[in-house]
């Protein structure tokens, strides 16, 4: 956590999104090489994101971001913070 973070009651994580719901990304807390990969794919703060559906077995998820479909697992989604729209 950096200094300017204050608790935000509206902030949740990406894995709580339901199919059809949209949100704005506030912070990506994923670590390691996946972090930059996610950035490269457009998962940056401010991007709008929508959950399209879960995979048939529940995981991974199919999100729509920047007009295309991106699939990531819940595990990473849990570390991405959002504001529901």
């Amino acid at each position: 956590m950096t200094g300017n973070d204050f608790p935000d009651i509206h902030e949740t994580t990406l894995d709580t999104l339901k199919p059809g719901e949209k949100a704005k990304i506030t912070k990506v807390r994923v670590k390691g090489s996946a972090r930059r990969k996610l950035f490269d794919m457009g998962m940056v703060a401010g991007s709008e994101i929508e959950l399209v559906r879960n995979a048939p077995l529940g995981d991974p998820m199919d999100y729509r971001i920047k007009g295309y479909h991106l699939s990531i697992r819940k595990e990473e989604a849990r570390q991405i913070f959002i504001h529901k729209l």
Partner: peptide
């Protein structure tokens, strides 16, 4: 296994 990050093309 590493995280799964994949584009689903139309």
């Amino acid at each position: 296994p590493a995280p799964f990050i994949m584009e689903l093309p139309p």
